[in-house]
Computed example of a mutant assay.
Amino acid sequence: MDFVRKIYGVLLVVGGVGLAHGTHYLPASGPGVKVFQPAKSLPLIELQDTLAKAVSFPPKGTAWAIYLGYTACPDACPVTLERLRQAYARLGSPKTVRLGFVSLDPANDTPAVMGRYLRGFLPVEGFTGKPEAVARLAAALEVRYNPGPGGTRLYHTDAIALLDEKGGLVRMIFGASRLSAATLAEELKHLVNLP
């Protein structure tokens, strides 16, 4: 009986860890989209790009698809970034849209680390910043995150934010890592076809 209880306990922990990453904060219904009409204003914060240059966020001038995650992520982040890159290519890499990745782990994801990591996901651009700046942005985008057991993982909302050319939030795509490149391309069309 003790053996069965131990096995059950291990399965609960492993299952909980698997569910927590990327999905812990999402509704039970799974992937979904939240639309903002009019566009939701975001707080103005300062981040750094991969060259350690200060940049104002949200960016203006072009539309953006932004994913928040961290470079040591073993699953949702690399899957989503690759599919986002593929989705962008499917649309012909429109000049009016840019792809971004903001780190939720600024203590470890320095500009140099972000730069090396994103070489495999071009044309995705990387941003990091002070923990309080990242926390303000995440809160505005309804992206939640917290360290996992042992501090090696970061559990976070798995979502892509679509921003218009004025820096306003127009759409949140939840459960992003579970969506195909074709589905993400359909979502990106909302930015390509902005009025």
Rank of each mutant, 00 (worst) to 15 (best):
S29T: 14
A161E: 00
K6Q: 08
P78V: 01
L122K: 15
A89C: 02
L11G: 04
A39N: 04
R85V: 00
L81F: 06
F127W: 14
D164K: 15
G15H: 02
R85W: 01
K34G: 00
Q37V: 06
G15R: 05
V170N: 07
P123R: 02
V55N: 03
V192K: 15
V33Q: 10
K130H: 13
A28E: 09
L169P: 09
V170I: 15
V134L: 09
K40V: 12
L118V: 08
A161N: 08
A39W: 06
D164E: 09
R83L: 08
P147W: 07
L104T: 09
F101K: 15
A107E: 13
K189C: 02
M172A: 05
L162W: 08
E186P: 01
V4P: 00
P58L: 07
P147L: 02
L188N: 06
A39I: 04
P58Y: 11
V192C: 01
G167Q: 05
I7L: 14
A28N: 02
K189Y: 03
G100R: 04
G15I: 07
V33H: 07
P58V: 11
E142F: 10
L47W: 04
R153C: 02
A181Q: 03
N108M: 08
F127D: 05
G61W: 11
G16E: 01
P94E: 03
E165V: 13
N108D: 02
L141P: 09
A20I: 05
K130C: 04
D109M: 08
T23G: 01
E187Y: 04
A107Q: 14
A65I: 08
P43N: 10
P27W: 06
V33G: 03
V170W: 03
V192Y: 05
S56Q: 14
W64K: 14
